[in-house]
Computed example of a mutant assay.
Amino acid sequence: MSLPAGPRRGVVLTDALRLSWLRLIRSENVGPATFRELINRFGSADAALAAIPELAARGGRWIGICTESAAEEELARATKLGARFVCLGEPDYPLHLRPIDYPPPVLAIMGSAACLQRPTLAIVGARNASLSGIKLTRMFAVGVGEAGYVIISGLARGIDAAAHEAALPTGTVGVFAGGLDRPYPKENRPLMRKIVDGDGALVSEMPFGWTPRAVDFPRRNRLVAGLSLGLLVVEAAQRSGSLISARLAGELGRVVLAVPGSPLDPRAAGTNRLIRDGAVLACQPADVIEALAPLTGAARNRDDGDMLFDEADEERLQDEPSDDERARIIEALGPVPAALEDLVAHTGASPAAIQLVLLELDLAGRLERHLGGLVSVLL
């Protein structure tokens, strides 16, 4: 059985525009949220790149901007490896990633981008998986894959690798914590080649040449969850990356499912707790398919628009805060997360003026963004 892919709407970027987008997202302190704020305010990546030095200086420091030559070099490395960059709003951008809060504006993809338009399930779990956990993972990956779903995972040892291997005939996507030219762990390189050679893909939002660090894996886990309609945890200890993935999936509105295990096995402690806290109990592939069925239809019918920006927001550009307003806004911020509407009420400044100050602080590395649009300053 094969479920139909979702609509492939959007606009294909020119080479020049793609280069500008890559320069912007590779510039220092520019993440997905900051990228969106810059494009919303200035209307294009080129205009945003020109404005960054002054904005960051107002926030308190100078930052590095990705040069045109550096971006061109990364594009060349991607081409040499057989990868390409897909930008938010383009037809090949992953269907289920588009509507999340602050999706990565640029993704490096190697393999079949078409599989990222199909219904998807993430399967994650322990690296030190038991034989039973490996067997269960294969059962779920095969059963759900044969029902038309692409299996997403993080290419780690144990459960991740078992899920990818079992889903090779039906389609699987591996998500990197580093650049696509920095595979981790190295022993999974043959598996990665099988994924690309089949009906699958490898995906990363990180730059080519980027070696993954411990802090990069939660970001990878968010991408795994965002690419999927639901996330199934097979084995997980009480403190594990798989539980972080489950939390992120819940925050993104994904269905969280878990396979129960023996109370005597510490690798089942996390999954049993997830079930106790409301995760869907999954004992067989049919349980997963039933839980995802309503979301599958909704995803196919969703229209997210082309999500590209062409013109600057003139009202925002003209709404510059005065020195007194800027001082009041910065003084109102602290280590406790605050909402934009509370800052407006407290300072009397306009939302556009406050957003500009937040952008300046963000580019200077002094702002932290939280779930729900809350912000705080780093002391």
Rank of each mutant, 00 (worst) to 15 (best):
A16K: 08
R26T: 09
G31S: 09
A48R: 00
A50Q: 11
I52V: 14
P53S: 11
A57L: 09
G60L: 11
W62R: 15
G82Y: 06
A83Q: 06
G89Q: 04
G89I: 07
E90M: 07
Y102C: 11
P103A: 10
V106K: 01
S112I: 06
L116W: 00
V124M: 03
L131V: 14
K135S: 15
V150E: 03
I151D: 02
G154H: 00
I159F: 08
E165A: 14
P169D: 13
G174A: 15
K186D: 14
E187M: 13
E187I: 15
R193Y: 05
R193E: 15
A201G: 08
L202E: 07
D216W: 07
N221R: 04
G230V: 06
V234R: 02
Q238H: 11
L257H: 02
A258M: 02
P263T: 15
P266N: 09
A279I: 11
V280G: 05
L281I: 14
E290T: 15
A291H: 08
E311S: 14
D313W: 04
L317K: 10
Q318A: 15
D319E: 08
E325I: 11
G334A: 13
A338S: 13
A339T: 11
P351G: 10
Q355P: 00
V357T: 10
D362F: 05
G365Y: 01
E368G: 10
V375F: 08
S376M: 09
